[in-house]
């Protein structure tokens, strides 16, 4: 279970409080107005910033002492998800070995993961020679190999068309299921949240609210969410 206990993050002109728990294996969308602190919430979980109060824990273990790379977390950013000087294969392989020196068996695993996300035969390409969707798939292959119990996605596929985005979200779900991971995804599109299903954390007014079932929340939004959704 991923828990945020009495977490408070304060910056000049900005404050965010969170007190919530997320079951392992859950699918959670993070919705809310721009600037409310959706990305900040993910950053606190990933370890890029330390809360001013409270604690972030996973399965009861305080994550505070762990730097980002040691946390049980994989993350997809808005951009900068692949190293342009490495091939798709090498980028994916970072999920297994940072040194890039792989055994034969590990090479096979990387190749299988690329096949799994639909990139057969594209392992030698560098990101510049891949489409946006293909780049996302490389990142997912890496996440598959890292097999961390928490996946954080920060508006990952905002640049993709609707059909492609749908397919990528389905792939996210499959990958998460395969490695048994919890998914937290920031989005500004309620349709993404519906598609992901599960629960939604609504972030607004300086507070990240406890997760509530997405369908129910979107069908009968509380006033603040209604303002956000309907303007």
């Amino acid at each position: 279970m991923l828990t945020l206990e009495g977490v408070e993050i304060r910056r000049p002109g900005f404050a965010l409080a969170a007190d919530l728990a997320i079951e392992n294996g859950a699918r959670v969308s993070v919705l809310g107005p721009s600037g409310a602190g959706k990305s900040t919430l993910l950053s606190a979980i990933a370890g890029f910033l330390l809360p001013d109060a409270g604690r972030v824990a996973f399965d009861g273990r305080d994550l505070a002492p762990l730097p980002p790379g040691r946390r049980p977390v994989s993350m997809i950013f808005q951009d900068g998800n692949l190293f342009p000087h490495l091939t798709a294969f090498e980028n994916a392989a970072l999920g297994l070995r940072l040194s890039g020196r792989l055994t034969r068996e590990e090479r096979d695993r990387v190749a299988r993961s690329l096949d799994r996300v639909g990139l057969e035969g594209l392992g030698d390409r560098k990101p510049g020679a891949l489409s946006g969707g293909q780049q996302g798939r490389v990142a997912l292959a890496r996440i598959l190999l890292r097999a961390q119990p928490v996946m954080l996605l920060d508006e990952p596929f905002a640049a993709l068309g609707p059909a492609l985005k749908r397919r990528m979200l389905a792939l996210v779900d499959e990958v998460a299921t395969e490695i048994g991971a919890t998914v937290l995804m920031v989005s500004h599109d309620p349709q993404d949240a519906r598609r992901l299903g599960g629960q939604t954390v609504f972030v607004a007014g300086g507070r990240a609210h406890a997760p509530a079932p997405t369908a129910h929340l979107l069908d009968q939004p509380p006033p603040a969410l209604r303002t956000y959704l309907e303007g």
């Binding site: 890029f48 790379g69 190293f83 970072l94 040194s99």
Partner: peptide, 17 residues
């Protein structure tokens, strides 16, 4: 951020990034 997230530090970060 990606390198931090992957735990790419020290020599590996130097060499690979």
């Amino acid at each position: 951020p990606l390198a931090d997230q992957l735990g790419l530090q020290g020599r590996a970060r130097l060499r690979r990034l």
